[in-house]
Amino acid sequence: MAEWLFAPFADFEFMRRALAGCLALALGATPVGLFLLLRRMSLMGDAMAHAILPGAALGYLAFGLSLGAMTVGGIVAGVLVALAAGAVARSSILKEDASLAAFYLISLAAGVLIVSLRGRNLDLLHVLFGSILALDDASLLLIAAISSVTLFALALLYRPLVLECFDPAFLRSVSVLSPVTHYAFLVLVVLNLVSGFHALGTLMAVGIMVLPAAAARLWTSRLSLMLALSAVTAVLSGLAGLLASFHADVPAGPAIVLAAGIIYVASLVLAPGGLIGARLWRRPHLEF
């Protein structure tokens, strides 16, 4: 058992790197994902993940599989689409979800097309599904740096962000931080999506953000606990996914997201906020 658990990481450096990448993502991207979820913006996260693709693809077209070019391209495209979707929602009759769906489809199509221009299927797979098992020093450092920045930013913005989520009118009435918080949060989302993009690909990046967050939401109604629980869930999913990938020889990215998905479905059934759990955890009601 121990052999089965530890040997892959003891014997192979690429597995250790993948695990470090998962750990960094769990500490940075997952808390951001929890706030996305609590602000009912999970789908927007998904749309923005796809929006990153054409930017990264343009970087790829110009410089090949260069980390820097794809990162910068992805961040620029992500920020542009986030702002554009907001502007479209405010000033046209389309609601934000419709405009996001439109942007997401356009971006995905454009991205795939641009990558194909240079024409290697292997690269396309890399872009769509990431390369968690082939993280080099630079990618690992980038992911770790984004996670560090995210943790600091969340610590600084925690209070205004919580207020912005549940009572934005109050935050606006006491402070000028409301727009600052909103846009800083969007930037954090884009940064973490880019980091998730390098590890898990454009199609899976949101998985490690939202699935562990959704699972944690079902177990507790205390935000601090929820944040910790979501990060732990994400680490466990990463570990389980990597092991499954190693032993069963399946692609790592989808295995990780599927592991998170299994934890989510289990929570959905068993947790106090879940389907059967609501009955499982029911205690006799009080007199008053």
Binding site: L38, V162, C165, F166, D167, P168, R222
Partner: peptide, 8 residues
């Protein structure tokens, strides 16, 4: 204008 489902 308050989101009452938020965990606070």
């Amino acid at each position: 204008e308050i989101d009452r489902s938020f965990p606070v």
